[in-house]
Structure formats: structure tokens, C-alpha cells
Amino acid sequence: MVKGHIEMFKKSLLFQMIMVQFTIDKGDFEGFLRKVIEKYDLIGPVEGDKSKLRRKSLFRKIVSPDELFLEKKTYFPVKGYFFDPKETLFEFDGDKIIDPKIELKKKVFFGLRRCDLNGIMHQDMVFLDENEDPFYKARRDASFLIGLHCNEGDDYCFCNSVELKDFFDLMFYDKGKEYAVEVGTKKGEEFIKKFSGVFKKKDKIITEEDRKIRNKKKLDTLDIKDNYDDDSWKKGSDLCVGCGACTLLCPNCHCFTIEDEVNFDLKTGKRVRKPASCQLRHFTRVAGDHVFRNEKLARFKHRIYHQIQYFKDRHEEVFCTGCGRCIEGCPARIDWVKIINEMK
């Protein structure tokens, strides 16, 4: 993309901050959510899928407000709601191409953290550029994003180091007895109007202190251009067992594979896309069995460079949102942040 385009594109994505602030009493909060549930699908963080033996927190449809898990960010990212892990691109019957139908109810997301929201913004940059992805767009158009500000980071996240942007329809800040609410978009403003009983206008209630996030972890530099041949990258790839969890848990990673699934008549079927992982060897295999980035080391560097440098070169934003899910979800807890910090 040309520079002018990037600016324009970002303006259309990055919400024009509307500096209106509201509060909602915690006593009214549950009632508010119940009203949301009546009208829309409410998607929020829950402690774990009840059907799973080893639960990890994730985003799910909320039926009752008490299911919400708001202590910390979720283990799984929210991306599956926008980038469906098994999207049908089209159906076919011989040479005839049939457009897929997607049923969408308007979804309200609550409890998105800044890292989740920036992940959505980065995916917007990829999927809503001049070659717009219609499936992603349809799912994004049907969504309303309500954030929840973290005051404390966990053991893995380092979002202060990666220049996160304000990107939300509404953002909630926990102020003890009440939530302060910041409006990010026109859509957000209209939403507040629908629930005017519970939101009270209160200017400048959100202080600088409220906006802070206290991280335990820090990435010292975002400039790794000259470190590509550094030996210490091996410290990371030498621990990697090659499961690909880092990319599947990343709120940004969007690489995919396209497959045809055919029915037994061998004539009808559908073309689907599924998430892929650049950390797995077959990611780049071409006909004739050549594999690029055949070594784990090259694949590891590819992931980190995409997160820190490549995306920035193209879109002028750091891809990584500093959520640390790739470290938390890694069986070997490969701490690439530490590896970079220790480089010269």
C-alpha cells in the first residue's frame, strides 16, 4: 500500500475518538447485560467450556451475566468469531459456483481487552484492505465491541511495549462501585442512547491513572532489523516442540489454507478455508516437495519478525499486541521477549 492510502485506511479504521464519558453503577450492570442478552447475542469471556476436562478461559455466548469471567484476559483469543475456523467460501455443483449463506445475528462483545481489540484492528487491516474479504466483513459488520480495561497485566503480557491504539465502540474502566465508560464511535454513542436509563453522563471521570496498565513484563526494543542473524534466536527454536499453539492462540495470526470438500457424488461440495500455522513445516510446501523455511529456526524467526517488523513495514503498526498468549500457551514457554531483551 502507498503511504497516502495507509493514512486514509487507518482513519477509516481507527475510530475518531469521541470524548464523551459515562458511568454505570455496578448495581445496574447486571440488569444492563440482561437487556443486551434479550436483544442481541452477547459474547463474553467465560472461565472455560463446561464440556472440557481441562478448561481454559475463552469467549462464548453468554446466557446469564453470572457466567462472565472478568478477572483477567482469556487464554484463547476472540478471533474465531470474525475469522471463522471453517468458513465456506462457496459451494459448487460441477462448474456452477453457489454463494454461501451465512446466518448472522448481531453480536455484542463484552470484556475485550486492549490486546484483543488491537488484534481485531490488525485483522481489519489485512481483511478489509482494497481486496476486501467478504466473510470477515460480514462478521465484523454484525459486531459491536465493548472493551474492558486491564489495570494489572498477568505474568506473560507486555502490552505497554507495543504501542497499542484506542480501538473500541465502548470501553469500560473499573472504578470500584461503578464502571466509567468511554465512547469510541458513533455506533457506541447510539448504543448508549438505547440504554439511557443506566448510563449517566460524567465528563472527565477517566483519569490518566485509570488508563494505565501495569505490566510485569517488558519488551525493550521494537527494532530487531539488524538482529536477523543473531545466534540467540536458536535459544527459542531449540526449545520448540513444533505444536503451532503460538500461532493458533495469537489474536493476530490469520494465515489460512483452502481446501475443497467434495460429496460422494463427486460433483457437489464446498471450498472451505481453515487456519494454518507458519510454525508447521508443511506451511510452505510446494509441488515437487520443496519446503521453504525448512528449519525450525527459520520458522521461529519468521513468526517473531512478522509480529515485530514485517507488519510494521507494510502497515506502520506493530502486529504484536503484547498479550503473551503465545508464551502462555507454549508447552515449553518459549520467552521470545526475553530472548530479544538479551540481544545486543
Binding site: K52, L58, F76, C243, A245, L249, G329
Partner: peptide, 11 residues
């Protein structure tokens, strides 16, 4: 692991 993570399992 790929399908395991897509099934939203802990490790």
C-alpha cells in the same frame, strides 16, 4: 496439536 487447539483445549 493444531486440531487440539482449534478444539479449544488446554494443553
Amino acid at each position: 496439536c493444531r486440531e487440539c487447539k482449534l478444539n479449544e483445549n488446554g494443553c
